[in-house]
Simulated assay, not measured.
Amino acid sequence: MRARVCFALLLGAMAVMGTAHAEGGCPSGMYPIGGQGVRGCAPIPGASAGQGGASPPAPPRPTGRWHDAWGAIAHSRSTSLVGTATAETSRLSAERTALKKCAVEGAHDCTVVMTYSNQCFAWVVPGVVGPGTQSGMAQAPTLEEATELAQKECRDGAGDACKPFYSDCAEPTFERF
């Protein structure tokens, strides 16, 4: 009989130990806090969300959104008129604005020669025009890079560096919530 009672006590103790808590009486993923008779548990920073019932941190909330900016260049071969657009909200809007500005003085053959978004644009032209000359256009993240790339495309009749004709940066804007 005595052996049965000891065995029952042993089983009871094991059952209670199965629900035992970590150091200081706190569940897994928590640590004891307090002192002077006041005790509690706090979550361990970086502890797994599945332990101790701690919930995962909330994902970061956006503070705003970026809006693309578009630019375009339209050109008339017959009149050499040019139309530009910058800081437009869409490619179509930029192209329409550039074409409209090109045609405002009577050009009827304006075509879009370049569109760019969230970048800079540079157009350089030869100082001396003649056979084999051509202007250069380029877009890049910075105005310096765009100008350098445009210079590489340009051919001047005298072999000199081409002259800046037009440049712009269509920079995106941030809208805060």
Rank of each mutant, 00 (worst) to 15 (best):
A49K: 09
G34W: 03
T84H: 11
T84R: 07
W70I: 05
A58G: 04
G34I: 00
G127I: 02
V113W: 01
S48P: 11
S80C: 00
E145Y: 02
S76A: 13
C169V: 07
V128I: 02
K163N: 13
G53Y: 09
S78D: 10
P45S: 12
A42P: 00
A58E: 05
A103Q: 15
G159C: 06
A98D: 00
G106V: 03
L99A: 05
S28W: 08
W66Q: 13
Y166C: 01
Q51N: 10
A42E: 12
G24N: 09
G29W: 03
G83P: 10
Y166A: 08
P57K: 11
S78I: 01
P60Q: 11
F174K: 01
T63C: 04
Y31E: 14
T147D: 08
V16E: 09
G52F: 12
E145A: 15
W66R: 12
R77D: 04
R65Y: 15
V38I: 10
A22C: 06
T115D: 13
A87T: 04
E153H: 11
M137P: 02
H21F: 06
T115S: 15
G159N: 11
W70A: 05
W66H: 06
P32K: 14
A20I: 08
C102P: 05
A54V: 15
P62A: 05
G50A: 10
E23I: 07
C26Y: 07
Q51Y: 09
T97K: 12
A42H: 02
Q151K: 11
A98C: 02
H67Y: 04
A47T: 09
T84Y: 15
V38K: 14
E153T: 11
E88Y: 07
T63E: 11
R176N: 05
R2H: 06
P27H: 08
D156V: 11
N118L: 03
P164F: 03
L10Y: 08
P56T: 05
A138G: 07
A161D: 14
A98H: 01
M114T: 14
R61M: 10
G52H: 09
S117K: 13
G71Y: 07
P32M: 07
R91L: 04
F7Y: 07
C102Q: 04
G25C: 03
G64L: 06
Q151F: 08
S117W: 00
S93Y: 01
G18N: 03
A161Q: 15
V16H: 05
A138H: 13
F121H: 10
G35P: 00
R61N: 02
P172Y: 02
I73C: 05
G130V: 01
M30S: 09
Q151G: 09
L9C: 15
C26V: 06
P45L: 03
L92D: 14
A42Y: 00
L143T: 03
G12F: 15
R39W: 10
S76P: 09
A22Q: 10
R91Y: 00
A22L: 03
R91F: 00
V124E: 06
G71D: 08
A140K: 06
P126D: 03
G40I: 02
T173V: 09
E95L: 02
C102Y: 07
T133V: 06
V5Q: 12
D168K: 06
C41L: 05
A13V: 09
